[in-house]
């Protein structure tokens, strides 16, 4: 009698308790929306040209004319932070999208068909997982060049393995459900079962993962930047941080590194928080429906 089970009143009485995402989620979501909108509309916003030198003085501190100050070339840091978001978010979004399209599909195929197909895919995933992600990224970017699509694709490839694993596990769990058996008895084809019955269920954790994945890839892109492997043209937050973090710049104008760091920090935090809340929200919902 060591561990008596706890009573969950809601579950016991079959009451579907209304779930909420909470205030924190909406703050996080608001931040994400602001930053995405600002990044998307950057060319049309009434801000300085991020590459124009001499907008302010060199290494001006934050103030009314340049909110985030200027860098050693006199470029406006506020404009640069917004423009930097473009690259960071594009890399984050498209790499995760690639990871989900490829990894999600592979995982579903492995989880649904099982057997030899599953063994081949799972083995490839293990190999990919065993290979250090950063080394892989170094290899690809080094060989294929430092353009935006290549960087995004590289990080996307690194994301395939973990996403495939999650997708496979989710698919396996749902394949056991009787509604899948019911669909087969009705005469549904494998493709129809995967698209109509499994996909909507697998997409939910994937959706939450998109946000978490973006957070990870934005940081990872920063990591690449430190190795000098970020995009060559244009700049991301990561590249800005690198540019702002020489000892001299840090001493004379810490804001040059601080604002992109801050932007990245808050964005990653918001993405993680929102993603986690979403995941929890849908998990609980799943329980409410009564997972066996």
């Amino acid at each position: 009698m060591d561990t008596p089970p706890q009573v969950d009143p809601a579950e016991q009485f079959g009451v579907v308790v209304a779930r909420r995402l909470g205030f924190g989620f909406w703050i996080a979501a608001a931040w994400i929306i602001i930053i995405v909108t600002a990044a998307a509309l950057a060319p049309w916003l009434p801000i300085a040209d991020p590459n124009e030198t001499g907008v302010g003085g060199r290494m001006d501190g934050p103030g009314w004319s340049n909110w985030f100050g200027t860098d050693s070339n006199g470029r406006d840091m506020f404009a640069r932070t917004i423009w930097g978001a473009r690259v960071s978010l594009i890399v984050g979004f498209f790499s995760v999208l690639l990871g989900i399209c490829v990894g999600g599909t592979l995982g579903m195929i492995a989880g649904y068909f099982r057997g030899i197909v599953d063994r081949i895919i799972s083995f490839s995933v293990f190999v990919l997982l065993a290979y250090p992600g950063l080394v892989l990224a170094l290899l690809i970017v080094g060989l294929a060049g430092q353009t935006l699509p290549i960087v995004a694709m590289t990080l996307g490839i690194v994301a395939i393995a973990p996403i495939a694993r999650l997708s496979r596990a989710t698919t396996l769990a749902y394949s056991e459900r009787e509604f899948v058996a019911a669909a087969r008895v009705l005469g549904a084809t494998d493709r129809r079962i995967m698209v109509r019955e499994l996909l909507p269920n697998v997409l939910i954790p994937m959706g939450a993962l998109t946000l978490l994945g973006m957070a990870i890839t934005i940081v990872a892109e920063g990591g690449l930047a430190f190795l000098g492997l970020s995009v060559e043209e244009g700049f991301s937050w990561g590249k800005m941080i690198v540019l702002g973090s020489s000892p001299r710049t840090l001493r004379e104008g810490p804001w040059v590194a601080m604002f992109p760091i801050g932007a990245m920090f808050v964005t990653v935090l918001a993405l993680n928080f929102a993603g986690d809340r979403l995941r929890e929200y849908f998990d609980v919902r799943e329980l409410g429906i009564g997972a066996a």
Partner: peptide, 11 residues
């Protein structure tokens, strides 16, 4: 009783 978001659940 258990407090739920919809009100008191009288178990």
């Amino acid at each position: 009783g258990f407090a739920t978001e919809r009100g008191l659940l009288r178990a």
